[in-house]
């Protein structure tokens, strides 16, 4: 599904290259649950953003379902992206001005899904996450765990093939974190959605079936 070849990214400081990522090779099969670990500044998030097509590398090749992502025009890439990828953030990043319902609905708007269909899909999702009663609340009226559930629901609504999560439990207490990870596991096994998460926690990483360890922009360890 995902092939990264010789991916490097750097910043120029005082004329010297400061590598964020260096020669990353990575193959990810469909249906995998990959955890990316590593200390702060090791390049985890950058790698995730490159996989998520939000960022580009300075060198290397990235194939997504066989398509060479970096060679695509922006429009094409956005198309590929919004059909296949869902994103989850540590800080949830819900739109404050929209209700729970509307937040979940938004990705569908960008995919031009019809109104009636949209309604059904959002209702389904609310049902599945037990949030029907909260659909008219605004993000600020929810707890952190609930906000992250909305974030996940939003990421899943468009039925992506790949779910990217950047420290999804970073702002949550351990109980809420566990619930989220259980949910991930379930999504991965039942819905066959590929998941890549960035995490600090060994425990969370263990939910995945594969862990890579990054240090200074290089893959240290690749545990299958």
């Amino acid at each position: 599904m995902i092939q990264l070849e010789k991916i490097s990214k750097w910043y120029n400081t005082n004329g010297a290259r400061n590598f964020v990522l260096k020669d990353i090779h990575l193959d990810i099969e469909e249906g995998a649950f990959l955890s990316i670990m590593g200390p702060s500044g090791s390049g985890k998030s950058t790698l995730l953003n490159i996989i998520g097509m939000l960022d580009t590398s300075d060198e290397g090749n990235y194939r997504f379902f066989g398509e060479s992502v970096f060679d695509l025009k922006e429009k094409k890439r956005t198309e590929l992206y919004k059909k296949n990828i869902g994103y989850i953030f540590q800080a949830y990043h819900l739109i404050d001005e929209l209700t729970v319902y509307e937040n979940i609905e938004t990705p569908l708007l960008y995919q031009d899904v019809k109104g009636s269909e949209r309604k059904a899909m959002v209702a389904d999702m609310l049902d599945r996450f037990n949030m029907v009663g909260k659909k008219d609340l605004f993000p600020s009226q929810l707890s952190g765990g609930q906000q992250q559930l909305v974030g996940i629901a939003r990421a899943l609504i468009a039925k992506p093939k790949l779910l990217l999560a950047d420290e999804p439990t970073g702002n949550l207490n351990s109980k809420q974190g566990e619930e989220i990870m259980e949910l991930f596991k379930k999504i991965n096994t039942e819905d066959k959605i590929t998941i890549i998460q960035v995490t600090h926690s060994e425990k969370n990483a263990a939910y995945g079936d594969r862990i890579i360890d990054l240090l200074d922009g290089r893959i240290q360890q690749n545990i299958q």
């Binding site: 429009k75 994103y87 739109i95 995919q111 468009a158």
Partner: peptide, 16 residues
Amino acid sequence: AREVGVRKVLGAGKSK
């Protein structure tokens, strides 16, 4: 800015 970022991540193109 954050709203713009989120909307972009959710698939909004620049023109939208």
